[in-house]
């Protein structure tokens, strides 16, 4: 599984990265987490509000920091 965190690196992006890392560990998933900070690349995903969470190249959350529980749900439904 490929997970991307889109955002210029503000506090929200850090929080989202933390949530994603924890969720991956808790679920025992085999996943890579990649940070995307380039503005053109972020726009390439159609994202205008950061941070955004991208799972397997699909934007699932944008413009807010989801809770750990929500990230877990999103990851496990993408893993099936």
């Amino acid at each position: 599984m490929n997970i991307k965190i889109l955002g210029p690196g503000c506090r929200n992006c850090v929080n989202l990265t933390k949530a994603a890392t924890t969720a991956v560990r808790q679920l025992g998933l085999d996943a890579t987490i990649e940070k995307v900070e380039d503005y053109a690349a972020i726009a390439g995903y159609g994202v205008m509000s950061t941070p955004a969470l991208v799972i397997n190249d699909k934007v699932v959350v944008s413009g807010r920091v989801p809770t750990l529980a929500e990230v877990r749900t999103l990851l496990s439904s993408a893993a099936v």
């Binding site: 159609g46 994202v47 955004a52 959350v61």
Partner: peptide, 15 residues
């Protein structure tokens, strides 16, 4: 100038 070359891709998600 790079701003004018950027194309919004993907499907825009409305938060």
């Amino acid at each position: 100038p790079f701003v004018f070359d950027v194309r919004l891709g993907g499907q825009v998600i409305d938060p």
